[in-house]
Amino acid sequence: MNRQLVSLIPVMLLGACASAPGDYPSLARRPIERVTGTLTPPPPQPAAIPVDPAVVRQIDSLLARVRAADAKFQAREGRVRQIIGAAASAARASEAWSVAMIALADLDAARSEGMVALADIDAIYAASRIEGEPASEAKAAREAANAIVAAQDKVIAGLQAQLVL
């Protein structure tokens, strides 16, 4: 009896699949599936917004601060190189090594003045980009200041490598 019941299951399942042809939905495209509409061109770009002269003056002032800090850095670099050259073979924590570390910290302080101004330039650049205002002046100043600070970083890294740390 069990076998008879099992053999009837496929017949019942096939019977459920058979129905009148009008009961199935059509596979033809429905009106909602048809591509319709028109393409509207994007709105015209607004005319170039002039940069606020006060912002330009502020950027110029900040870049001048970076350059002044670089001049201070350059003025101190020669003396620091001499001190570190004299302490290159000195033992760690010796008098010569300590004087060299202080001179290196003094050179790093000159670099940090430029980095503060660079951070302010970065803030102006970011604010301009967020607000959708022109940022070409800030970008140019930022790139110039980054180049100056990157060169200073290389000098300091080279001087640090001369000391036995």
Rank of each mutant, 00 (worst) to 15 (best):
P50Q: 05
V51L: 00
V51H: 00
D52S: 02
D52Y: 04
P53S: 10
A54N: 04
A54E: 02
V55Q: 01
V55D: 02
V55E: 04
V55K: 02
V55N: 00
R57I: 05
R57S: 04
Q58R: 12
I59Y: 04
I59N: 07
D60F: 05
D60G: 06
S61N: 09
L62S: 09
L62D: 05
A64Q: 15
A64P: 09
R65Y: 06
V66L: 10
V66A: 09
A68R: 13
A68E: 11
A69H: 08
A69D: 05
A69K: 09
D70S: 13
A71M: 13
F73W: 05
Q74E: 09
A75E: 13
R76I: 09
R76W: 11
E77Q: 02
E77P: 01
G78Q: 15
G78F: 12
R79F: 10
R79A: 15
R79W: 03
R79Q: 15
R81V: 14
Q82K: 14
I84F: 02
G85A: 10
A86T: 06
A86R: 05
A86W: 03
A88C: 12
A88N: 10
S89M: 09
S89Y: 11
A91R: 14
A91G: 14
A91Q: 13
R92G: 09
E95C: 03
W97E: 15
V99H: 08
A100C: 14
I102W: 12
A103I: 08
A103T: 13
L104P: 01
D106M: 02
D106S: 15
D106N: 14
D108V: 12
D108N: 07
A109T: 04
A110N: 05
R111I: 09
R111S: 07
S112R: 11
S112Q: 15
G114I: 04
G114Y: 07
G114W: 06
G114A: 06
V116H: 08
V116Y: 15
V116P: 13
A117Q: 07
A117F: 04
A117C: 01
L118Q: 05
A119W: 12
A119N: 14
D120W: 12
D120P: 08
D120A: 10
D120R: 03
D120L: 03
D122M: 03
D122R: 14
A123R: 13
A123E: 11
I124V: 14
I124D: 05
I124N: 08
Y125Q: 11
A126E: 08
A127K: 08
S128A: 15
R129W: 03
I130C: 04
G132A: 06
G132C: 10
P134Y: 00
P134T: 01
A135I: 00
S136D: 09
K139T: 03
K139D: 09
